[in-house]
């Protein structure tokens, strides 16, 4: 039961990663690309957590937490750069 659900969820999240990657490559403007990167890291967290459930190991939470932290900092830094032309004034 859970295995079937995991397979379906892996397929859906994989498709989501592909769609965000497409937007990252195509995105007409810089904010589109930042948004695509933001979506990509959130999707990666979902993939890691699903993988942790599948192999029944809780080693991956720290990795997911680190990705969440670093992704947020990266998004803020990129937006700040677009807004002010500088990251730390």
């Amino acid at each position: 039961m859970i295995d079937t659900a995991l397979t379906i969820a892996f397929t859906l999240v994989g498709l989501a990663v592909a769609l965000s990657f497409w937007r990252l490559l195509r995105g007409p403007d810089a904010p589109d690309r930042i948004l695509a990167l933001d979506t990509l890291y959130v999707n990666t967290i979902a993939l890691l957590v699903l993988f942790g459930i599948q192999i029944d190991s809780n080693l991956y939470f720290e990795a997911a937490l680190l990705i969440a932290l670093m992704g947020f900092v990266g998004t803020v830094a990129l937006c700040k750069y677009l807004l002010r032309g500088d990251i730390i004034e």
Partner: peptide, 30 residues
């Protein structure tokens, strides 16, 4: 059953979010 429902709902919502990112027409709706 609860776990399977939560996992499938999570995958579906993640997919819908990225579908919106890919399909909508201007940045503010994306």
């Amino acid at each position: 059953y609860l776990l399977a429902f939560l996992i499938i709902a999570g995958g579906a919502f993640t997919f819908i979010g990225s579908l919106g990112l890919a399909r909508l027409r201007d940045f503010y709706s994306r």
